[in-house]
Lab assay of single mutants.
Amino acid sequence: MTEYKLVVVGAGGVGKSALTIQLIQNHFVDEYDPTIEDSYRKQVVIDGETCLLDILDTAGQEEYSAMRDQYMRTGEGFLCVFAINNTKSFEDIHHYREQIKRVKDSEDVPMVLVGNKCDLPSRTVDTKQAQDLARSYGIPFIETSAKTRQGVDDAFYTLVREIRKHKEKMSKDGKKKKKKSKTKCVIM
């Protein structure tokens, strides 16, 4: 069974824990209790493949930012979460993405942009803004509501699919490099 290491990042209060708990335990946590770091595991079937999701729910508070490099190193894919009623959390996505790329030393890291709290009427981040940002990053965008469960499975499952595509691409690139290195030079 394939294991996928997913990391949920975003500013404090955007609903990272609520999304994760909704996926794992099928219930909505409405009281806000700032996370330092929590880890969850769940076995699911995605596109006919049974897999184990190892999900790291991270601290959004700035005082825990020193811990970010460590979990970013171990993560295979990242859910970059903002709240649709919090423009600052949307603007912060850029910083999370840049930090992930720096730590992973790669421009090509599996990510999904997630606009959470889409059940709320007080939207300050337009869907088109988020779609445009995701398009500019070359990553999928999904709106979710941890409260109603809308888009929750889709967000995590899409990230797994992005990781699969990335692994497939990397193995193809690896095979191309191996083929090239088999060419021999004969000096007579």
Rank of each mutant, 00 (worst) to 15 (best):
V109D: 01
S65L: 06
K117R: 13
I100A: 03
Y71T: 13
Q70G: 10
L79V: 10
M67K: 06
S65A: 12
E107A: 12
K117Y: 15
I84C: 14
Y96V: 13
V114G: 01
V112E: 00
G115N: 04
T124C: 10
Y96L: 15
R123H: 10
D69M: 02
R73C: 09
C80L: 14
R68C: 06
M111F: 11
R73F: 08
D126M: 08
S65E: 11
A83M: 04
M72T: 07
P110N: 02
M67V: 06
D105T: 03
M72G: 08
I84V: 14
D105K: 14
T124R: 10
V112D: 00
D126S: 10
V112G: 00
A83P: 15
R123Q: 13
E76T: 13
S65T: 09
R97W: 15
V125S: 11
V112I: 12
F78P: 00
E98W: 01
G75C: 10
A66W: 11
C80R: 00
K104P: 04
F90G: 06
S106T: 13
T74L: 07
M72P: 13
C80G: 04
R102P: 02
A66N: 11
G77P: 00
Y71C: 15
S122Q: 13
L113S: 02
N116K: 00
R123A: 14
R102G: 09
V114D: 00
A66D: 13
H94R: 13
N116C: 15
M72F: 09
C80V: 13
G115E: 04
G115H: 05
D69F: 01
T74N: 14
S89G: 07
E98C: 04
E98V: 01
E107W: 08
I84N: 15
V114S: 01
C118G: 11
E63G: 04
L120A: 12
P110W: 01
L79D: 00
R73L: 08
D126K: 08
M72S: 08
I84Q: 15
F78I: 06
F78Q: 00
K101A: 12
K104D: 04
V112R: 00
L120M: 11
E63I: 02
D108E: 10
F78L: 04
T124L: 09
P110S: 03
F78S: 01
L79I: 14
V81L: 11
V109M: 04
M67I: 05
E107I: 11
D108R: 07
R73S: 11
N116S: 14
K104W: 13
K104T: 12
E107L: 09
D119P: 03
V114R: 00
G115T: 06
E107S: 08
K104C: 14
E107R: 07
S65D: 06
E98F: 01
F82D: 01
K101Y: 04
Y71D: 12
S122F: 08
L113C: 07
M111H: 01
D108V: 05
M111L: 07
C80I: 12
P110Y: 01
M67D: 06
T74V: 07
E76V: 15
I84H: 15
R123N: 14
T124G: 13
D126R: 05
E107Y: 10
D108S: 08
V103Y: 09
E91C: 02
K88C: 10
Y71E: 15
E63F: 02
D69S: 07
P110G: 01
N86S: 08
D69E: 11
F78T: 01
E76I: 14
S122G: 14
P110T: 03
D119V: 02
Y64P: 03
K104S: 13
F82I: 08
V114P: 00
M67Y: 06
D126L: 07
K117A: 15
R123K: 12
R102A: 13
D119F: 03
E76K: 04
V109W: 05
F82A: 14
T74K: 12
Q70K: 10
G77L: 09
M67F: 05
T124H: 12
S122N: 12
G115R: 03
G75W: 06
F82Y: 11
L113G: 01
T74G: 12
E76G: 05
P110E: 01
A66I: 08
C80H: 03
A66E: 08
T124W: 07
T124D: 14
P121I: 08
S122R: 06
V81E: 05
M111E: 00
V81A: 05
R102T: 07
G77M: 06
F78A: 01
D92G: 08
E76R: 04
G75N: 08
I84W: 14
D126E: 09
V109C: 06
K104M: 13
T124E: 14
E98T: 03
V109G: 02
E63A: 04
K101E: 11
L79E: 00
G75L: 03
I84P: 15
C80Q: 03
M111T: 02
V109T: 05
M67L: 09
K117C: 14
Y71V: 10
S106M: 08
K101M: 14
M67N: 07
D105S: 09
V81W: 00
E76Q: 11
K104A: 13
I93V: 11
Q70E: 08
G115C: 10
V125A: 13
P121G: 13
M67S: 06
E107V: 11
L79N: 00
